[in-house]
Structures are given as structure tokens and as C-alpha cells.
Computed example of a mutant assay.
Amino acid sequence: MSGAGGPLFHMVAGGPRPVAPFSHAVEADGWVILTGQMPTDARAPDAPLPEGIVAQTRAVMENLRIVLCGLGLDLGHVVQCRCYLTAFERDYAAFNDTYQSYFPADRRPARTTVGVTALAVGALVEIDCIARRPE
């Protein structure tokens, strides 16, 4: 955890291979900010991306879980998500159906979803999030 010493920059062992120069997460004062995750396979980072928005959303959520778990947290600690879709109109409904299955209906994080022109590695979806450690 961090305190007067400043933020902690985390790289999680067994976490997804970064597709750019970043930390998996940065932590300050109990807040944990996770870098946007891609639908890559943490165990086989050079494997092709899964096909379709449902499979890619599942892969992204699994990568968020891996990073959170590596920090002693889980999806229940997530308070906010930002989601990026390259084919917003086509994929929004299927994305929502898949995404919502990861959170209880009465404990869904705040969320923003944005349509974008492109994402790294040709992904259809990317999600970043903010989690809070219990006090």
C-alpha cells in the first residue's frame, strides 16, 4: 500500500503482457487505477485475439481479474470502469449483456462507454477501471 512515500507502480506476475509502456496498476492512498486491458491471453500473449465482442469482452474482464487478484483485490472492489468499443452501434448491446454478468445488479461500478476509431492490437474492446482497497 502507499502512504507518505507516494504512489506504488505495480506489474503483476503472470499478468497480461503490456502492449505499450505502462504499469498494470498504480496505487495511491487505497485507490488502485488499472491500465486498460486488451483481449489478449495472459498465458499466450502472441495468440490471435478471440473473435467477436462477447469473447473479447470476456478476455478483457479476465485480464482485469488477473491484475486485481495479483494485488489482493477482485471485481467487487471496482468502483468505476471506462469502456472503449471500436464498433459501438454494432457491439453495444452484446457488450452490455456480457459486461453485466461480472457484477451483481445492486453493485455495478459507475461506468462510461465510448466509441473509438481504433484500439491497440486491433481489439474491439478495452476496459480500464478504478478499485478501492477496503479500509
Rank of each mutant, 00 (worst) to 15 (best):
M1Y: 08
M1V: 12
S2M: 07
H10S: 09
V12P: 01
A13W: 03
A13Q: 10
A13T: 09
G15V: 06
G15N: 05
G15W: 04
V19I: 11
V19M: 05
P21R: 13
P21Q: 10
P21S: 10
V26E: 07
A28D: 08
D29K: 10
G30V: 12
G30M: 12
G36W: 00
Q37P: 04
T40V: 15
D41Y: 06
A42D: 02
P45V: 11
D46L: 14
D46V: 13
A47L: 10
P48M: 08
L49S: 07
L49W: 06
E51D: 13
G52M: 09
I53K: 02
I53G: 01
V54L: 03
R58I: 10
R58G: 02
A59K: 01
V60A: 03
M61A: 02
E62D: 13
N63E: 03
N63Q: 10
L64R: 03
I66Y: 02
I66F: 04
I66V: 15
V67P: 00
L68G: 00
L68A: 01
L68T: 01
C69K: 14
G70H: 06
G70F: 06
L71C: 09
L71D: 03
D74R: 05
L75T: 01
G76E: 05
G76A: 07
H77R: 09
H77E: 03
H77N: 15
Y84I: 01
T86N: 06
A87Q: 14
E89Y: 12
R90A: 15
R90N: 09
R90V: 14
A93W: 07
A93I: 11
A94S: 11
F95L: 03
N96M: 15
D97C: 13
Y99V: 00
Q100I: 12
Q100P: 00
Q100M: 10
S101A: 15
Y102D: 07
P104E: 06
P104H: 04
A105L: 10
D106L: 09
D106V: 07
R108W: 02
T112F: 05
T113L: 00
T113N: 00
G115K: 05
V116L: 10
A118N: 09
L119K: 03
L119T: 04
A120T: 14
V121A: 11
V121T: 11
G122T: 11
G122A: 12
A123T: 05
V125I: 15
I127C: 01
I127P: 00
I130L: 14
R132F: 11
R133H: 07
E135Q: 13
